[in-house]
Design a protein around this nucleic acid. Structure first.
Length: 422
DNA sequence: TCTGGGGTCCTAGGACCC
DNA sequence: TCTGGGGTCCTAGGACCC
C-alpha cells in the first residue's frame, strides 16, 4: 500500500504572524523585510498581486509602497519562531507522524487515515489551526511528498479547493500536473527549469512523462527521484526526528560598509558567540571554524575571502571560539577595503559526548562546560544577549549591528511587549 | 544612498593505495 | 611512441530548498 502524505504550509507566514496581532492589516497589502530592512521576504496576496517579487530590494519598490499604502514590517524572528511552534504543536494533536520541514511547513504521514475522508480531515486540521493560532494554512494531500507539494500550491490558489486538496486517487491528478509549471515542481530550480524548457518540457505533466535517460543524464539521481515521485512512487519518506546538523553558520550584512578592524573584530566575536550557542543547543562541538569577509557583492570589484582554522580539540566554548575566529580574521583582513558582510561557520561537528580529547590539552574542559551551561541558562531565562562577551562590543548602535526600523513588538515572548487592548 | 540568512545533497575530479 | 585498472576518500563547486 502506498503511503499518504499531507503537506501543511502556512500562507504568507511572516505576514500572517503580523496580522494575528494587528487585524487591521487584513485585506491590505503587507510586506515583511529581511535584515537591515533590505528585501521583501514575505508578501501578502495583495502585495503579490501588485507584482512585487520575493527578495525584491525595498529601495526599488519604494514608489509602489507609497502609492499603494503597503504596510511594511521589519522581520521579527522571535515572534515568527514562537508562532511556528504553536502551529506545529497544534498539528501534532492530529498525528504523531509529523516532520517539521521548515519554519512554516510540515509533512504529515496520513497513511493510517485512509478510511477517513481526507479532504474533510484536512479541513478540520485547517480550521483548528486557524482557531488556535490565528494562522491560515493550506493543505495538499498525495502519495508522495512531491505530489503533496503540487496539491498544496493548487489548494492555496484555487477558490474551489478552499485551502485543501486531496490528489490521492483523484481524477483531477493529471489536470493538476498539467496546470503546474515545471519550474514550480519541488527540486526544479532556475538552472534545471531552463534546461527543461529548452527540451520542450514546460509542465509537471510533461516532466512526469519524460524519458528517464535525458533527466538522469543532466540532473543525476535527484532528477530520477523527481520523476518517480511525480509518477506516484514515493522516494522520500517522513523524517521524524531531525538529524544532527552538519554545519552551522552565523553571518550578517552590515547596514553600512566597515573598514575598521576593531569593528570587524566585534562583529566576528558576536557571530562566533552566537554560533557557539547554536552548537551547544545541538549538543555538538566544532572541529573546524571558518571565518569569511566580503565587500559589496553588487559592485564590480568584489572581494571575498575565507579562512579555515582547525581546532586542536573540538569545542563549543564561546571564548575559545571567539579567539580562533579572531585568528582567522587577522589572516584575511586587508586594509583599505570596505566590507559589507562577514560570518563565522562551524564544520566537522561532532557529538559533545563523544569528544576526542588530547592528552596535552591545556584547557580545563570541565570548568568551561559549567561556565557555558550557566551562560546559556542566564540568557534563556532573562533574555538572549543579557550576558555577553566584552569582545562583542558594548554599544548597541555600532555600524555593524543589524537594524530593524519597523519591527513589531514580540507580543508572545516578552512580558513588556504584550498586546495592549484599549 | 539603499540589495537576507541558513542549510542539504550530489557529482566530478584529484590523490592515494593496491 | 608506448604509459593497467579499480576502489576509496576527500574537496570544491553546483544545484536546490525555505
Amino acid at each position: 500500500m502506498s503511503p499518504v502524505y499531507a503537506l501543511v504550509d502556512c500562507n504568507n507566514f511572516y505576514v500572517s504572524c503580523e496580522r494575528v496581532f494587528n487585524p487591521k492589516l487584513e485585506g491590505r497589502p503587507v510586506i515583511v523585510l529581511s535584515n537591515n530592512d533590505g528585501c521583501a521576504i514575505a508578501r501578502s496576496n495583495e502585495t503579490k498581486a501588485l507584482g512585487i517579487k520575493m527578495g525584491e530590494p525595498a529601495f526599488q519598490i519604494r514608489n509602489l509602497i507609497k502609492s499603494h499604502g503597503i504596510q511594511v514590517y521589519s522581520s521579527n524572528y522571535t515572534l515568527y519562531g514562537d508562532m511556528s511552534q504553536r502551529v506545529m504543536q497544534t498539528l501534532s494533536q492530529f498525528t504523531p507522524d509529523i516532520e517539521i520541514y521548515s519554519i512554516d511547513e510540515a509533512f504529515l504521514d496520513l497513511s493510517g487515515f485512509t478510511h477517513y475522508d481526507l479532504t474533510n480531515y484536512g479541513r478540520r486540521i485547517r480550521s483548528t489551526i486557524k482557531r488556535w493560532t490565528g494562522i491560515p494554512v493550506s493543505i495538499g494531500i498525495a502519495e508522495t511528498k512531491t505530489l503533496a507539494k503540487i496539491a498544496n500550491r493548487i489548494a492555496k490558489k484555487s477558490k474551489k479547493a478552499a485551502g485543501v486538496l486531496d490528489l490521492t486517487d483523484s481524477p483531477f491528478r493529471d489536470k493538476a500536473l498539467e496546470i503546474t509549471d515545471v519550474a514550480d515542481v519541488w527540486g526544479i530550480g532556475r538552472q534545471y527549469a531552463r534546461f527543461l524548457r529548452m527540451n520542450g518540457i514546460n509542465t509537471a505533466l510533461q516532466l512526469r512523462d519524460t524519458d528517464d535517460a535525458l533527466i538522469k543524464n543532466k540532473m543525476g539521481v535527484v532528477g530520477t527521484r523527481i520523476l518517480q515521485e511525480l509518477r506516484g512512487v514515493s522516494c522520500y519518506s517522513l523524517e521524524h526526528c531531525p538529524p544532527r546538523k552538519k554545519e552551522i553558520t552565523v553571518s550578517r550584512s552590515f547596514k553600512l560598509p566597515i573598514e575598521s578592524p576593531d569593528e570587524l573584530k566585534e562583529a566576528i566575536a558576536a557571530y562566533a558567540s552566537r554560533g557557539s550557542e547554536k552548537l551547544r543547543q545541538e549538543h555538538s562541538a566544532a572541529g573546524v571554524l571558518m571565518v569569511f569577509l566580503m565587500t559589496n557583492r553588487f559592485e564590480k570589484r568584489f572581494y571575498i575571502k575565507f579562512e579555515a582554522v582547525r581546532l586542536p580539540v573540538a569545542t563549543s566554548d564561546s571564548s575559545e571560539l571567539i579567539r580562533y575566529a579572531h585568528d582567522g580574521l587577522r589572516k584575511i583582513y586587508r586594509k583599505g577595503l570596505k566590507y559589507k558582510k562577514a560570518g563565522v561557520m562551524f564544520h566537522e561537528l561532532v557529538s559533545e559526548d563523544r569528544l576526542q580529547t588530547s592528552l596535552f590539552d591545556p584547557i580545563n574542559r570541565q570548568r568551561s562546560k559549567i561556565l557555558m551551561k550557566t551562560l546559556d541558562a542566564v540568557n534563556t531565562s532573562i533574555g538572549s544577549g543579557s550576558l555577553k562577551y566584552a569582545a562583542e562590543g558594548l554599544r548597541n548602535n555600532s555600524r555593524w549591528r543589524t537594524v530593524f526600523r519597523k519591527r513589531s513588538p514580540s507580543y508572545t515572548t516578552n512580558w513588556n511587549q504584550l498586546l495592549k487592548i484599549s
